[in-house]
Each structure stands twice: as C-alpha cells, then as structure tokens.
Design a protein around this nucleic acid. Structure first.
Lengths: 149, 149
DNA sequence: CTTGACTCTAGAGTTAACTAGAGGGTTTAC
DNA sequence: GTAAACCCTCTAGTTAACTCTAGAGTCAAG
C-alpha cells in the first residue's frame, strides 16, 4: 500500500479525515497529487510527515512551531538547532506550569480542609456562599489585581 | 461610596469596564439600576458579588460553574455542598494534570539529553528532522492513536 | 442499476473569557 | 462653552486545533 486515499492515511495515523485536510490547508502538508476525479493520493513520505507532525505535537510543539520547523527544512536548513532550543523553552514552560499548578493545588486543598472542618453554619440572607466568602478573608480586601489591562 | 458607576466598580475589583459588562450579559451579574441617562449604578452588594466571582475564579471555577452556584443561591438553596464537590473535582483534576505534566516533562527532558549526546549527524535528503525522527522510534510504528473520533 | 461507503469544496461553528472598535451621548472641570 | 473623561450599544475579533454541515460527485459490490 504505497498509495492511499485520505481515509486510509487518516486511519494509519489515528486522526480524522477533515483533520488531515486541515493540516494541508494550514500549510503543514504539501498539496497532494490527485486522481482523475480529484481524490487526494498520498504516499509513504506523506505518511512519515504526518507521523512526524503528530509526534512533535505530542512533544508539546504547536502546529505553528511545527510549520516553522518544516519550512526551515524545506529551505535546506537543518532545523535541529532551532528544534532543540524550542524544546528547551517547552521544558522550562512545563516546569513553570507545574509550579503554578502545585501552588494552586495546595490553595484548593487548604480551602477544602478548612471548609470541611467548619461546615457552613447559619447563612444570613445576603451571603451567597458562606464557604467561598469566608475563604476570601484570607485575601486582604481592596484591589488584589488578579487581572488588569 | 455606596453607589458607583461601572468604571469605579471595575477599578475596585481590578478588572476592565467591558469585562464587567461581559459578566452582566453572561448572566453572572444582575441587570443593574440605571441613571436617567442610562448609566449603570452599582451598590455594595454588586461589589461583593463581583469579588466573589473573582475569588471563585482564582480557585479554578469556570464562569459557568460560578453561574451555577449563583443560580442555586438565587433559588434559595445553599450551594455549599455543590461547591465542595466541585472543588473536590478540581482538586483531582489538578492532581491528574500535574501527573500528566510530570510525565510530559520527563519525556521532554529525556529527548533533550538524548539529542544533546548525539548531535544530528549526516542528514539524508528525505529526513525532515533527524532528532525528532530518531526519537520517534521509541514509539513503535503503527497506530498509537493520540487522537481519534 | 442501485446502494452504501467514500470523497470533494466551502464556509460556519466550537470553547473560554474576554478585548477592540465604531459611532454616539453625558458629565464635569475649567 | 468646550474639552476631557466618562458612559452607552452593538458587532466582530481573538486563540488553537480542529469539527460540523450542506450539497454534490465517485467508486465497488451485488
């Protein structure tokens, strides 16, 4: 099966047919040859290319980044230096994100044990959720600017 | 300052004016009173409500979830049970995400050290990026289904 | 020759949480 | 009385990576 139609290609790489077409129109895949009736025809190099894209994606590269890598390659440049520095950036991003999530996690856990140890008591009429509101008092009133422009 | 216009409210809670209007039209804030000329007028209960929303958001609740909490409260139900179970779900989601990120991180790190120890050598013409492609061989060929429908 | 599975194009919709812009009225300070 | 700073509504755009729909053509089997 050196030649295949889009459905087979999609199945081989575990994606949907429209997604393959999307990759093409996003500039990640070259315009494929067509049969007389207009069906796309793919070969093994297309298969390899799609697999590369999927793998790069699983390494955390965005489609834009992958496109940049492929473009470099098409210009004859070896993209590996670029690839390494991208991956390094992803590594530190991931580390930072893990840090953030850890802090977030302990904030959630703290709030939760706190709530459980003091279940919601009598709720005055203007209170929306006693739990959330009580836990807000940790954050000093006034602007704490969780978002700005 | 018990009464304020939208700009002041926005400033108090550290968000933009359009964002406040967005919360209103998303159903998170009640339609406020208006001045004769149509300006929105807010009171302290609105301020408290927006602060609650921001805090809940910082705990990881989506605006949809917050809306559900507020709706429950408006129906006279105490939403705290619901809130606790939501927060518990967020906690386990966060844990799972940390796990995923950790695995992802070590995959990146492994790939990176591997690449560095064997820099890209001679690149045959049909190779796109030797590094990525070499690291693909870990994943056995065939469908590994990172996505399907 | 018909049925079903496959393919094509083009364009709109999805999600979240807003932001940006156009075009116009209002308030306040000088 | 005028200029700055505020406010209004409405619509569209942002990001990523697709998915979905409609309407139509093609191919293989029975």
């Amino acid at each position: 099966m050196v030649f295949m139609k889009i459905g087979e290609l999609a199945e081989q790489v575990g994606m949907t047919v429209p997604a393959v077409r999307f990759y093409e129109q996003a500039g990640l895949l070259p315009k494929p040859a067509r049969t007389g009736s207009g069906y796309r025809v793919y070969g093994t190099s297309d298969l390899r290319r799609v697999q590369l894209i999927r793998h790069a994606k699983s390494l955390g590269f965005s489609l834009e980044e992958i496109k940049r890598i492929l473009r470099l390659r098409e210009q004859g440049t070896c993209p590996c230096g670029e690839v390494i520095s991208m991956l390094q950036r992803h590594l530190s991003n991931t580390d930072a994100q893990i840090q953030r999530l850890r802090r977030f996690r302990s904030e959630i856990a703290r709030t939760l044990t706190e709530w459980k140890s003091s279940p919601d008591g009598a709720v005055p009429g203007d209170v929306i959720c006693g739990l959330i509101e009580r836990s807000m008092d940790h954050c000093k009133p006034g602007r704490n600017g969780t978002s700005r422009r």
